[in-house]
């Protein structure tokens, strides 16, 4: 019931954001905003596995790229509306997430992280050598200029990503408040004790990898329409893997608010830096901020605020 209230509230905020952006009446704001929103979805998705269960995934880019390439594949086969493509992209990445979970969840800590990195490399190699989706040449997606009811296509993409943010945040918050959330936390804390308390750890970990993967794939599905030309090196780019780890870490990994704050803060900062300084500064900013936060506030901004509240009480 309270989840429903939260969902309605989020939808209201999303509508306000959309019309506020429209009011600014500048296409660039939509372009930049899309990227920021995309990172909100990605970091929320990463946090479901990385923050709640404590399994660090370095392969976020692979799940994102799978969603994007599912779109390219279908675009060549039979063009579908974007909401359907998102469902397909989510399903593909979710299934790969499930498979990855099954293969790698016996590994812990750094070993799991390395395995996810390896998965990303394997998938990128597959895509580079798959001619139908463009191979290493990349693939062009020609998007329409306008769409009915909304107008410019970029506004439509922005709206779609806004909807994904609403879905991702609702899922994340729903998990936190449910039995699943407690189960995930016990996996993060002590798997042996979790099993002894009746928690089916393997099943929960598979749920986490599937959900996390699916949301990343959903974030990736509209990407080819946004960028217009998709090549493996951009879809599997380092910035996706690094950002989806750094944003939750900087925001705070224990609640859905953390990735949201981290992504908005870091995402906007990167967009501003791209315009004012240069696009190469992006990852440098992320790296510096990550180092600073690991030292000063290991529990992120949310942890910092929580600590401050506890002290003043």
């Amino acid at each position: 019931m309270r989840t429903r209230v939260f969902l309605l509230l989020l939808i209201a905020v999303a509508i306000v954001v959309f019309f506020a952006t429209r009011w600014v009446n500048n296409d660039y704001v939509f372009f930049a905003g899309y990227t920021v929103l995309q990172f909100v979805v990605l970091s929320t998705a990463w946090n479901i596995l990385g923050g709640y269960t404590g399994y660090v995934n370095f392969g976020s880019a692979a799940f994102f790229a799978l969603g994007a390439y599912a779109t390219v594949f279908l675009h060549k086969l039979y063009p579908l509306p974007i909401p359907l493509l998102i469902v397909v992209g989510g399903a593909v990445s979710g299934i790969v997430g499930l498979g990855m979970g099954y293969l790698t969840l016996r590994l812990r800590g750094a070993f799991f992280a390395i395995a996810t990195l390896a998965l990303a490399v394997v998938l990128q190699t597959l895509i580079v050598n798959w001619d139908y989706v463009g191979g290493s040449r990349g693939a062009y997606i020609i998007r329409p200029n306008e769409i009915a009811l909304i107008g410019p296509y970029i506004q439509y993409l922005f709206l779609v990503m806004l909807a994904l943010v609403v879905i991702a945040l609702t899922v994340a918050r729903g998990i936190e408040r449910s039995r699943l959330g407690y189960g995930f936390a016990t996996i993060r804390d002590d798997e042996l004790a979790a099993e002894a308390s009746g928690v089916p750890t393997l099943r929960l970990k598979l749920i986490a990898t599937t959900l996390s993967g699916a949301l990343m794939g959903m974030a990736g599905a509209p990407f080819p329409y946004y960028i217009g030309y998709l090549q493996p090196s951009s879809a599997f780019g380092l910035e996706y893997a690094v950002n989806s780890i750094a944003m939750p870490m900087i925001g705070g990994t224990t609640s859905w608010v953390g990735p949201l704050i981290g992504a908005i803060l870091l995402g906007s900062l990167q967009q501003i830096a791209t315009v004012t300084i240069s696009s190469a500064v992006n990852l440098l900013i992320v790296g510096l901020l990550l180092v600073a936060f690991v030292i000063i506030a290991p529990n992120g901004i949310v942890g910092l605020v929580q600590g401050w509240i506890r002290r003043t009480k």
């Binding site: 039995r179 407690y182 308390s197 009746g198």
Partner: peptide, 22 residues
């Protein structure tokens, strides 16, 4: 081996949720 990030009461909630309720 307590669940270190959960409160004392929530530590007990876990077996209640996952064993008794299951």
């Amino acid at each position: 081996r307590p669940f270190t990030t959960l409160t004392v009461a929530d530590n007990l909630r876990v077996p209640l949720l996952y064993t008794v309720n299951a």
